[in-house]
Each structure stands twice: as structure tokens, then as C-alpha cells.
């Protein structure tokens, strides 16, 4: 990942991004330019390479050609298919650890209010292994209310989440955008955002 030091509105730029898997091109010469305050929604059929593209942009997947240039130095906040919470730890312990990883000082009150935002109030001390799939996902999504990374990369954030939850996350994303944040997401649900860019992988 190359750091672009120019100060401007651009947050992300990619040049000739090419990814090949098992002798098949997922995408070729992909050029993306994304500004602060914008959303990039990546569409495409199953297996079109949406998740791989998101992993490349997040810095997880390294077997590609081309360049990814971010305006910010930090890794983005990445929410993938895997929930990333430990079964043997409570919701609160999990979030404390995840905040530690982002070097963010959070108090127990911060965590509890973030959990309340994703309607998990009362589940603070419940082990994540005893929660449902949707609840575990919510614990992970609570990070959106807790951490301050300028870039969010969300792979199917609404899967296994009910209607109310979707509305709540959508509102949070809009709030983040108005704070000059940047969001890249994939979703099978249609959601309305201002400043949205669409990219369809075939």
C-alpha cells in the first residue's frame, strides 16, 4: 500500500487493479477513485470477487497486481464474513480487545452504550458463544459506534441482521459520511445513501 501524501479530498485511488484466481480473472485493470464522504457499493453475482476486492482494499489479500493508494495511514475498520468475536469471551471483553487492537482508549461506559445502540443492552456479560449468529454479528457491528477509523470496509454488514438493525446501521453509516468518513460496502439489500458510487463486478 502506497501512501499518497497530497492533501486533497481523495481518500482512495486504485490503479490497474487486477486479480486472478485459478486461471480466471476476477477483475482486470480496475480503477477506483473515492473521496471523503463517499460510499462505494460493490455489486456482483456470487463468486464475482466482491469479497476479494474488499480484502484487497483492506490490505488483507496481497496476491494482486496494480496499486492501492490510501490517503490515510491507518488500516480501515473491516467487517468481513467472519464475525471476529471469540466465543469464550463476553460481548464486553470482545469489544475491549477489539478496541485495544485499534489503539483506542474506551471506557466500559462507551462499550455499554455502543452495545445498547445495536440493541444488545443487557447482553454485556453474556459469552458470545451463547449468542445467536445475528447477535454475534451485532457485537462486531457495535465497533462502528465505538471506534474512530476514517475508513470502513463492510462486507455484507446487513446479513443476519433484522430490519430495525439495518435501519440503525444505515443511519450510522450516513452519520459517518457526513463526518467526512469513507465507506466501502457490499450488500444484497438496496440501501439509499447520499454520494454513492456503484461498481458492478461481472
Amino acid at each position: 500500500m502506497v501512501l499518497n501524501t497530497q492533501m486533497n479530498k481523495t481518500m482512495l485511488e486504485t490503479q490497474q487493479l487486477t486479480c486472478e484466481r485459478n486461471h480466471r480473472f476476477l477483475f482486470q485493470d480496475l480503477s477506483i477513485s473515492l473521496n471523503k464522504g463517499e460510499v462505494l457499493q460493490v455489486d456482483g453475482a456470487n463468486g464475482a470477487g466482491k469479497s476479494t476486492l474488499l480484502k484487497i482494499l483492506a490490505g488483507l489479500y496481497e496476491d494482486f497486481e496494480g496499486e492501492v493508494m490510501w490517503q490515510v495511514e491507518d488500516y480501515p475498520l473491516y467487517i468481513g464474513h467472519k464475525v471476529g468475536v471469540k466465543d469464550a469471551m463476553s460481548a464486553r471483553e470482545n469489544l475491549m480487545w477489539l478496541a485495544d487492537l485499534q489503539a483506542t482508549e474506551v471506557s466500559q461506559g462507551d462499550i455499554d452504550s455502543a452495545l445498547a445502540k445495536v440493541s444488545l443492552a443487557g447482553y454485556e456479560d453474556v459469552l458470545c458463544g451463547e449468542m445467536s449468529e445475528g447477535q454475534r454479528k451485532r457485537v462486531n457491528l457495535a465497533r462502528l459506534f465505538l471506534l474512530h477509523n476514517p475508513v470502513w470496509i463492510l462486507d455484507e454488514p446487513f446479513s443476519a441482521i433484522d430490519k430495525e438493525g439495518v435501519a440503525c446501521i444505515t443511519d450510522r453509516i450516513k452519520e459517518h459520511l457526513s463526518d467526512a468518513g469513507t465507506v466501502i460496502l457490499t450488500s444484497h439489500q438496496t440501501v439509499e445513501f447520499p454520494n454513492i458510487q456503484s461498481l458492478t463486478l461481472s
Binding site: 488500516y75 480501515p76 473491516y78 467472519k82 464475525v83 471476529g84 468475536v85 471469540k86 487492537l101
Partner: peptide
């Protein structure tokens, strides 16, 4: 293995902390 399977490892790699310390 468990960190790999539940995605915790991804979060460790995409962290502000040096991975080597983790």
C-alpha cells in the same frame, strides 16, 4: 486455528498495533 476460523486473526492483522506484539 480458532482465531483464523472466527475472523479474529483478520482483526489482528488490520490493527493499529504491531502484529508482531500480538
Amino acid at each position: 486455528k480458532s482465531d483464523y476460523e472466527d475472523g479474529a486473526l483478520e482483526q489482528m492483522v488490520l490493527s493499529k498495533q504491531p502484529l508482531i506484539l500480538v
